[in-house]
């Protein structure tokens, strides 16, 4: 009986290690899939292995593999959820937390990104600096310049990993502080006085000239018909109405062009900020 139970224990031990070996082989395979850029396959295989009974370090590796494959596929929300689950003891922990936060920043979910950085256990100065670096980016994306300066003051500016990008962020911050946004009201008023001048003010010179040519051409037509045919003739009323529609539409268009100019400026600035956040992360942690 005793021998039998010993035998049972031995058999179960062997089978357990066999399962363990099998799992680690499967994780090797999932890593291979990720390295070969078979991202869909890597996600599938990770999910399959995660359903088995596996150790916490193995879970960490799989969450990292899944998260990174999702990042490669630009499934950023899913990616940050996977990366968030990578545990503290994993070698991939800092990379996972930082990229998870970056994904959320990219998606514009600043609240969740900050929360993720809050819970990030930074033990080395490098990780602390990068956490703050991302925070400064969040400040800048929210156009909170004083808070940005405060955050930047907490990190050494001369760390080789992000020196260039940090100075770029400072340049963007200076520019944002002095930038004057285009006023839709002013653009509208300008185009009311001289058709097309509102568009020129918004930086759309070509559109402005086209608007000026069309409106002044139509006004000449109206004047001609008014003088030669008389104010109560069909042609005069017809061209007069067309002119009015174009004139008023042009004022609305000028106001809209100012709004577009502002949106374009903001989108471009956001893109530059995200770019400058992304490059150091990829250089240091990839």
């Amino acid at each position: 009986m005793r021998i039998f139970s010993l035998f049972l224990i031995l058999v179960s031990f062997i089978s357990l290690t066999a399962v363990g070996q099998n799992t680690s082989k499967r994780i090797d395979f999932a890593t291979y899939l990720l390295n070969q850029q078979f991202n869909q396959e890597a996600i599938y295989e990770s999910n399959q292995i995660l359903q088995l009974r596996i150790s916490p370090p193995q879970k960490d590796s799989l969450h990292y593999i899944r998260g990174w494959a999702e990042y490669n596929l630009k499934e950023l929300r899913a990616s940050s959820q996977s990366l968030k689950q990578v545990g503290h003891s994993s070698v991939f922990y800092p990379k996972s937390q930082l990229f998870g936060a970056y994904n959320l920043i990219y998606l514009g979910d600043f609240g969740k990104a900050s929360a993720m950085l809050d819970s990030f256990k930074t033990e080395t100065p490098l990780n602390r600096h990068f956490s703050l670096f991302l925070r400064s980016g969040i400040d800048l994306l929210q156009r909170d310049i004083p808070s940005f300066r405060e955050t930047v003051n907490k990190i050494p500016a001369d760390y080789y990993g992000y020196t260039k990008e940090l100075s770029q962020l400072n340049v963007i911050a200076d520019e944002l502080a002095t930038h004057k946004r285009k006023s839709p009201l002013l653009a509208g008023i300008l185009s009311g006085i001289l058709p097309g001048s509102g568009q020129v003010y918004s930086g759309k010179t070509g559109q402005g000239i086209a608007a000026l040519l069309l409106t002044s051409g139509l006004s000449l037509v109206v004047i001609e018909n008014f003088n030669k045919r008389g104010p109560d003739k069909f042609e005069t009323i017809f061209f007069g109405s067309v002119f009015t529609v174009f004139y008023i539409g042009n004022i609305y268009g000028a106001a809209f062009s100012a709004k577009i100019a502002n949106d374009d400026y903001n989108a471009l600035t956001d893109k530059q900020i995200l770019f400058n956040l992304h490059i150091p992360l990829r250089n240091i942690f990839n």
Partner: peptide
């Protein structure tokens, strides 16, 4: 004789 009308339109 409607030069502008003819040309523009």
């Amino acid at each position: 004789g409607y030069y502008f009308t003819g040309y523009v339109v």
